[in-house]
Amino acid sequence: MSATYSERRGQLETYFDRTAHEAWKRLTSDAPVSGIRATVRAGRDDMRRTLLSWLPADLSGRRVLDAGCGTGALAVEAARRGARVLGIDISANLVGIARERTPSDLGGGAVEFRPGDMLDPAAGLFDHVVAMDSLIHYPDRDIVGVLAGLAARTAGSVVFTFAPRTPALAAMHFVGRAFPRGDRAPAIEPVTEARLRALIEGDPRLSQWRIGRTLRISRGFYISQAMELVRS
């Protein structure tokens, strides 16, 4: 991967392990949060349901990668549908929370949480990959590079999200720059859907893949767009 990918990955690891893991732990729980964070929580809940609905209803025997698993909610739901899930996140602290929250009874499924890079080839092969809001901090060409790396080890589908370039999102980023740098995450990198489509369709590493469903979810301060890649 590119130098920008490595640099941004390091920034995110530092941010989530040193600054944001307690706030993220609260956001992804049932604890009361501010009105702004409540809209982010609701939007993330909607997005998680959307991405899971794009996977087969019965995941028995399927191996699923939750790339950027955070505190593990999506991975647990996939496991409850029968999948063998590997959840990987660059933040060891978030992985620790995910392990603590893993229920003892997952039916016929199983889940393992591991700190590390979603592109680590040692993770093996998968039937499906989900990357929810784990690519939104990377430039568009790095997003496509990650997708190509994941697709090379995936048999079925890759579903992911990106930050769509919208006036509302641009305004939120402008407001966010008023906060001290140590208190905010590395910048989100908005990209237009047309630009991302062009890069995906023009990348020879993804020549055996096509873009399927796409859906934008906007709930207050949460704006994110889901996209599906399936084998041609």
Rank of each mutant, 00 (worst) to 15 (best):
109 G>F: 10
156 G>P: 09
6 S>I: 10
32 P>W: 00
132 M>W: 03
20 A>G: 02
206 L>G: 13
64 V>T: 08
118 M>L: 15
190 P>I: 02
114 R>E: 11
99 R>G: 15
52 L>C: 15
176 G>N: 12
205 R>T: 07
52 L>E: 14
88 I>V: 14
184 R>Q: 02
90 I>T: 03
73 A>W: 06
22 E>N: 00
217 I>N: 01
10 G>M: 01
145 G>S: 08
197 R>G: 11
86 L>W: 07
200 I>Y: 06
97 I>T: 11
182 G>T: 03
165 R>H: 07
204 P>F: 02
14 T>I: 05
66 D>M: 00
48 R>Q: 13
27 L>W: 01
60 S>C: 08
27 L>I: 05
136 I>C: 10
192 T>C: 03
22 E>L: 02
191 V>S: 07
66 D>E: 04
66 D>F: 00
142 D>S: 14
127 D>P: 10
155 A>P: 06
23 A>N: 04
126 F>P: 12
200 I>G: 09
190 P>Q: 02
200 I>P: 03
91 S>I: 00
124 G>P: 14
227 M>W: 00
232 S>E: 10
44 R>T: 14
63 R>G: 09
180 P>H: 01
26 R>S: 04
84 R>L: 04
124 G>N: 11
130 V>D: 10
86 L>K: 07
86 L>I: 15
167 P>T: 07
215 L>E: 12
176 G>K: 06
123 A>V: 08
187 A>H: 01
98 A>T: 05
6 S>R: 04
201 E>Q: 15
48 R>S: 14
65 L>S: 05
151 A>Y: 04
111 V>Y: 01
25 K>Y: 01
140 D>T: 08
55 L>P: 02
16 F>T: 02
114 R>Q: 11
201 E>R: 15
18 R>M: 04
220 G>Q: 06
72 G>E: 14
69 C>Q: 00
79 A>T: 06
175 V>P: 02
50 T>N: 03
67 A>W: 08
154 T>V: 12
211 I>N: 07
153 R>N: 14
197 R>T: 13
64 V>K: 06
141 R>I: 03
173 H>L: 14
64 V>I: 15
45 D>N: 14
58 D>R: 05
7 E>T: 12
40 V>K: 09
126 F>L: 14
2 S>V: 11
203 D>H: 12
192 T>S: 11
202 G>Y: 04
227 M>F: 03
